Amino acid sequence: MKLKDRVAIIFGGTSGLGEATAKAYADEGAKLVVVGRDKSKGNRIISELQSRNQESIFVEADVSKAAEVQAVVNKTLEKFEQIDILYNGAGIHDAYKTAIELDEDEYEKLMDINVKGPYLASKAVIPHFLKRGKGVIINIGSQSTHVAGAGGSAYVTSKHAIEGFTKQLAYDFGSKGIKANLIAPGFIESPMTEGIEDKRLNDIPAQRAGKPEEIAALAVFLASDDSNYMHGSTVTMDGGWTTGR
């Protein structure tokens, strides 16, 4: 029960890594606000959590819209009166398109969700963290945080950018009790990777794709007091793929 009575907002919590993290946080005693754009998936997850007597609500929102993000924060405070953990897990891929293949509107949509989203969510939650003198922000990167080739032009750009944003959060607010770190997952079994025939699996020392539950366990560690001396860190969990790059 490392997160007992703590309140976590999980953006991108209706599938994949976000869903696994929401369930792991609940198992550790956290109260949850699961956020996403798919109401049916959100309600399914909440029903599952509530059937285990785990306090949780679903809020439908687009992370790229400031007003909707602020509404999530307001609803969280109305329901639970506090926020302890912000998990920025919403993200989309660009199908490995190059700069000349990618349309401008596709680029803007990806950057809005992958980069602007974590900025808006952090901006909305940090004032509450500052009042309490503590808080946790976990951002989600990728193998593309470190290297090219694990995504297309926009995706790689976004995942490099989110590492810089995480470092700046730690620099600006670490002394005020706010802990910000980045998880850089590798090739993980999730809706984003479903159906992709990726030769990288042959190059991964672990010789397999990762499981969402493995990333969720790392997210529990970063949200808990066990990682309190980690600020601005990027923690890579990719089965060793980037070690050979």
Score class of each variant (00 low, 15 high):
Tyr87His: 13
Asn88Tyr: 06
Asn88Asp: 10
Asn88Gly: 09
Gly89Tyr: 10
Gly91Glu: 06
Gly91Cys: 06
Gly91Lys: 06
Ile92Asp: 03
Ile92Val: 15
Ile92Ser: 03
His93Ala: 05
Ala95Arg: 14
Ala95Val: 12
Ala95Thr: 13
Tyr96Arg: 05
Lys97Ala: 11
Lys97Pro: 08
Lys97Asn: 11
Thr98Arg: 08
Thr98Glu: 03
Thr98Phe: 04
Ala99Cys: 08
Ala99Asn: 09
Ile100Gly: 01
Ile100Asp: 11
Ile100Arg: 07
Ile100Ser: 08
Ile100Glu: 13
Glu101Asp: 15
Glu101Met: 10
Glu101Lys: 13
Glu101Arg: 13
Glu101Thr: 14
Leu102Phe: 09
Leu102Ile: 15
Asp103Tyr: 09
Asp103Gln: 11
Asp103Thr: 09
Glu104Thr: 15
Glu104Lys: 12
Glu104His: 12
Asp105Asn: 13
Asp105Gly: 01
Tyr107Gly: 01
Tyr107His: 12
Glu108Lys: 14
Lys109Glu: 12
Lys109Trp: 05
Lys109His: 07
Lys109Gln: 12
Lys109Tyr: 06
Lys109Met: 11
Leu110Tyr: 07
Leu110Cys: 06
Met111Val: 15
Met111Ile: 15
Met111Cys: 06
Met111Leu: 15
Asp112Val: 04
Asp112Ile: 05
Asp112Phe: 06
Ile113Gln: 03
Ile113Gly: 02
Ile113Arg: 07
Ile113Ser: 03
Asn114Lys: 00
Asn114Gly: 02
Val115Ile: 15
Val115Pro: 02
Lys116Gly: 04
Lys116Gln: 07
Gly117Ile: 00
Gly117Phe: 00
Gly117Arg: 00
Gly117Pro: 01
Gly117His: 00
Gly117Thr: 00
Pro118Leu: 03
Pro118Cys: 07
Tyr119Gly: 03
Tyr119Lys: 05
Tyr119Val: 15
Tyr119Asp: 07
Leu120Arg: 00
Leu120Lys: 00
Ala121His: 07
Ala121Thr: 00
Ser122Arg: 04
Ser122Cys: 13
Ser122Gly: 15
Lys123Trp: 12
Lys123Met: 13
Lys123Gln: 15
Val125Met: 04
Val125Arg: 01
Val125Tyr: 02
Ile126Cys: 05
Ile126Gly: 06
Ile126Thr: 11
Ile126His: 10
Ile126Lys: 08
Pro127His: 14
His128Lys: 12
His128Leu: 02
His128Ile: 10
Phe129Trp: 05
Phe129Leu: 04
Phe129Glu: 04
Leu130Ser: 06
Leu130Cys: 07
Lys131Thr: 13
Lys131Arg: 14
Lys131Met: 05
Arg132Glu: 14
Arg132Leu: 10
Arg132Cys: 09
Arg132His: 08
